[in-house]
C-alpha cells in the first residue's frame, strides 16, 4: 500500500489507481501539501490527455487553459468532496462542467458550428457519463477508425479533425465535394454506431 504522498501509481488495476487518488485527496483535505501537489499533477495529466484526444484542433495553449481551469475549480470546490465517497465521479463532474463552459465559449468565439457539435457527439462524454466511460469511448473511436474505408477515414480526418472546408478537402483528396460529404457522413455514422454498441456492451 503506497503512502498518500508517493503519488498515484501509474500501473495496477483501475480500482487501485482510483483508491490511490482517494487517498491523495483525503490527505490534501487534511492539509498535506505534497499529496495535494501529486493529486493536481495527476489530474492535470489526465485532463490534458483527455482534452487533446477529444479536441485535436485545439492549440496547446487552449488545452492548458482548460486544464488550468479544471485545477482551479478543483481547488475552489475541494471542501465539497466527501472523503467517504470516491474521488473520480466528483472530479469528473467538475471537469464535465468546465468542459461545457469552454465548449460554449469556443462556439461563441470561433463559430465552430457543425464540426464542434459533431465532434462533441463522437468524442465527448455525454452528461451523466463517468470518466471510465469516456475512456471506453475513446478506445471505441480509435478501434472504429480502423474499420473505416481509407477514403472515409481520410475525408473524416480532413473535414472533422483538421477542420478543412469541403471544397479544400475535395481538392486535396482529388475528388468532388459531394463524394467528401457522403464519406464524412458515413464515417460519422459508423463511429457513432461503434460508440453506442460498445457503450451497451460495457
Amino acid at each position: 500500500m503506497p503512502t498518500a504522498t508517493e503519488g498515484a501509481p501509474r500501473g495496477g488495476s483501475a480500482e487501485s489507481r482510483h483508491a490511490a487518488l482517494d487517498n491523495l485527496m483525503r490527505a490534501a483535505q487534511q492539509g498535506d501539501r505534497r499529496a495535494y501537489h501529486a493529486l493536481l499533477e495527476e489530474v492535470a495529466l489526465r485532463m490534458r490527455r483527455l482534452v487533446s484526444a477529444r479536441a485535436p484542433w485545439l492549440g496547446q495553449a487552449d488545452v492548458e487553459d482548460i486544464v488550468q481551469d479544471v485545477l482551479l475549480s478543483l481547488h475552489t470546490a475541494r471542501a465539497t468532496w466527501d472523503p467517504a465517497r470516491p474521488f473520480m465521479p466528483w472530479i469528473a463532474a467538475i471537469a464535465r462542467n468546465r468542459l461545457t463552459d469552454h465548449a460554449r465559449r469556443y462556439k461563441r468565439r470561433q463559430a465552430f458550428d457543425a464540426a464542434a457539435s459533431d465532434l462533441a457527439e463522437v468524442f465527448s462524454t455525454t452528461p451523466g457519463q463517468t470518466h471510465a466511460e469516456g475512456v471506453v469511448n475513446l478506445i471505441s473511436v480509435r478501434r472504429a477508425m480502423s474499420d473505416l474505408s481509407p477514403g472515409e477515414r481520410r475525408a473524416f480526418e480532413m473535414v472533422r479533425l483538421r477542420e478543412m472546408s469541403l471544397s479544400e478537402a475535395a481538392e486535396e483528396g482529388g475528388t468532388t465535394v459531394g463524394a467528401i460529404k457522403v464519406a464524412v457522413h458515413r464515417a460519422s455514422r459508423k463511429l457513432k454506431q461503434a460508440i453506442n454498441r460498445d457503450g451497451k456492451e460495457g
Binding site: 490534501a28 483535505q29 487534511q30 492539509g31 501539501r33 505534497r34 495535494y36 501537489h37 493536481l40 499533477e41 492535470a44 490534458r48 492548458e64 486544464v67 488550468q68 485545477l71 482551479l72 481547488h75 475541494r78 471542501a79 465539497t80 468532496w81 466527501d82 472523503p83
Partner: peptide, 22 residues
C-alpha cells in the same frame, strides 16, 4: 501562467479544509 507553476502555487497555499456537511 504555466500549468506547473499554477500547481506549485495552489499546493503551496492549500491548508487543511473541513469537508462541507451534507
Amino acid at each position: 501562467m504555466k500549468t506547473d507553476a499554477l500547481i506549485e502555487s495552489l499546493a503551496r497555499e492549500a491548508g487543511p479544509v473541513r469537508p462541507l456537511p451534507a
